[in-house]
Nucleic acid binder design. Sequence first.
DNA 1: TCACAAATGAAAATGGTTTTCATTTCCATG
DNA 2: CATGGAAATGAAAACCATTTTCATTTGTGA
Lengths: 121, 121
Amino acid sequence: MSRSNPRVLSTLERAGGFASAQEVYRLMQREGESIGLTTVYRSLQSLVSDKIVDVLRRDDGEAIYRMCGGAHHHHLVCKGCGDTVEIEGGAIEKWAKTIASEHGFKDVGHTAEIFGLCPKC
Amino acid sequence: MSRSNPRVLSTLERAGGFASAQEVYRLMQREGESIGLTTVYRSLQSLVSDKIVDVLRRDDGEAIYRMCGGAHHHHLVCKGCGDTVEIEGGAIEKWAKTIASEHGFKDVGHTAEIFGLCPKC
DNA sequence: TCACAAATGAAAATGGTTTTCATTTCCATG
DNA sequence: CATGGAAATGAAAACCATTTTCATTTGTGA
């Protein structure tokens, strides 16, 4: 197992808590930090599985990492500019639980995302 | 420029209007259609820019294409055996619409998937 | 100091997607 | 019918983010 390199988290914070692995890597290089791309990826993965950061996808498929508040939430994503808003998913939680138990499923989780065009786009 | 190959659209329809380029390609091959992967990608891109299909991303970054407009459904997926059940998403539709309009978003779509362990697993 | 686990990173592998380019298919015109 | 150019096609190569491999370094407890 590998633990997160703290400089990665601090760089992500400094980047506004919103950057791709490649961007974090380039940023650290530009600042003279000695680190390998592999370590950046591993640290980000570890931060994700520890729920310290959230991962989502740009339109081109590149993963972007973002510091997030603790509670489980969903995203409203703009198809135009990629802007995202964290949203509550109360209704979804109930829906998922209901449907799952109707079909006898246990140990249930879910994903949900809403996308559209934001007012600016 | 290239126009969409109609067999690509028809295959996407047959797939339930929800598949990746690779899946459409494999499906067409399995059905004996002679087509290249390049053409599948080009056709899907063209369908997207014509707003006939929508594109979004799986968690692993793979692009999935979906017919917009046609009735869509969601999936209940077993983490154990991969079995999937198609489900209605009435509650979700409303939730997505409400949340989106609260934030001034237009042209709204959504994804949602429930996963868990089916009775057999 | 010694030994062993964890961390690191360079390089190679992976895999979806895009680009290149030579070839084939269409189709309007003479 | 030609025939000439535009559009479509697809095999192979290029691309690029991400993951894996593996040899090396670092840290730590005995």
